[in-house]
Amino acid sequence: MRSDPALARLSLNQRTTAEWTLREAIDGTLAAGLSSIGLWREPVADVGLEVAAKWIAESGLRVSSLCRGGFFTVSEPAARAAAHADNLTAIDEAATLGARTLVLVPGGLPPGDTDLAGARARAAEAIAELVPHARSRGVTLGIEPMHPIFAADRGVVSTLRQALDIAEDFDPSDVGVVVDTYHLWWEPSVEDQIARAGDRIVSYQVCDWITPLPADTLLGRGMMGDGHIDFPTFTSAVAAAGYTGDIEVEIFNADIWATPGDEVLARMSQRYLELIAPFL
């Protein structure tokens, strides 16, 4: 199916249709008139990297990002070496798939550790160690700051300000930041930080913050327009910063996962046209 020009920058992040296989996600993305997809390493591994790369190339889809690398806040030497090796592999996978950006989720506190600043410093050190290989493969590392409710177990980098403090030690072509509405909508002066980010924004991911939060807070993301985020203002700030890349819809939500994928894509496309596209 031919892509819809009105949806030219809209990308399906695979987690939004988590029940779909990679093949189904590619076919569903094409059927919805989209031209871009955000891939996850696990579904790629299910079919094998070579097969996944072949399917993507044949589809003509852009790969807006690959999720995910990171989880390198461990302190034990063997664990740090294992995390580094896995991230080198993730960089290679991104290059093979044609993804310009590898999304990095820094990781949380190791068991029994309460040194948040120390864990954040280890994340910065781990990123620095990855830069030479990422540069050689033409992949930009995208640091994804995460909402503070995930600081203990997933992301010790909680604000865009903190992510930029790390990224600015490197060339923008090597290390950038991921702007995700779900994680950053609450941050004080976030519009100023988006402006500061400028050409370091390597991915703009959107979904809504819904309440009440589910028991598993990881699944508390909603479709744009179903929650509390001011998408016009947020998107205008990202556009003013100069971002011209794809906009990924990334939703972790059990009810959405249980909905037929074609219905999810139809709804997300409509919400994109209403809440995102007019402000780009």
Rank of each mutant, 00 (worst) to 15 (best):
L66G: 08
L66F: 14
C67N: 04
R68F: 12
R68K: 04
R68A: 03
R68C: 00
R68Q: 00
R68M: 02
G69S: 08
G69N: 04
G69C: 05
G69Y: 03
G70K: 00
F71P: 01
F71M: 09
F71Y: 15
F71A: 06
F72G: 09
F72C: 14
T73I: 12
T73L: 08
V74P: 03
V74Q: 15
V74D: 11
V74L: 15
V74C: 13
S75E: 10
S75T: 15
E76F: 04
E76Y: 06
E76H: 06
P77S: 09
P77Y: 10
A78Y: 04
A79T: 02
A79M: 06
A79D: 14
A81F: 08
A81D: 10
A81P: 02
A82V: 01
A83H: 13
A83N: 12
A83F: 13
H84T: 07
A85C: 10
A85E: 14
N87S: 10
N87W: 07
L88R: 07
L88I: 10
L88F: 08
L88A: 00
L88H: 05
T89Q: 11
T89R: 05
A90C: 12
A90S: 13
A90W: 08
A90G: 02
I91C: 04
I91K: 01
D92R: 12
E93Y: 15
E93T: 14
A94M: 03
A94K: 00
A94F: 14
A94D: 05
A94I: 14
A94H: 04
A95K: 11
T96W: 07
L97T: 03
L97W: 12
G98S: 07
G98V: 04
A99K: 07
A99I: 13
R100K: 15
T101P: 03
T101W: 01
T101A: 03
T101R: 00
L102W: 15
L102E: 02
L102G: 02
L104N: 00
V105T: 11
V105K: 00
P106Q: 01
P106N: 01
G107R: 05
G108A: 06
G108M: 06
L109S: 02
L109F: 02
P110M: 13
P110W: 03
P111I: 06
P111S: 10
P111F: 10
P111N: 12
P111H: 03
P111Q: 12
G112W: 08
G112A: 05
G112R: 03
D113I: 09
D113Q: 04
T114H: 04
T114G: 11
D115S: 11
L116F: 12
L116P: 02
A117I: 05
G118P: 13
G118D: 11
A119M: 04
A119T: 08
R120F: 00
R120A: 06
R120K: 13
A121L: 13
R122Q: 13
R122Y: 07
R122C: 07
A123P: 01
A123C: 13
A124F: 08
A124K: 14
A124V: 12
A124Q: 13
E125H: 09
A126S: 14
A126D: 03
A126M: 15
A126G: 15
A126C: 11
A126W: 04
I127N: 00
L130A: 12
L130N: 01
L130S: 01
V131Q: 08
V131D: 07
V131N: 01
V131A: 08
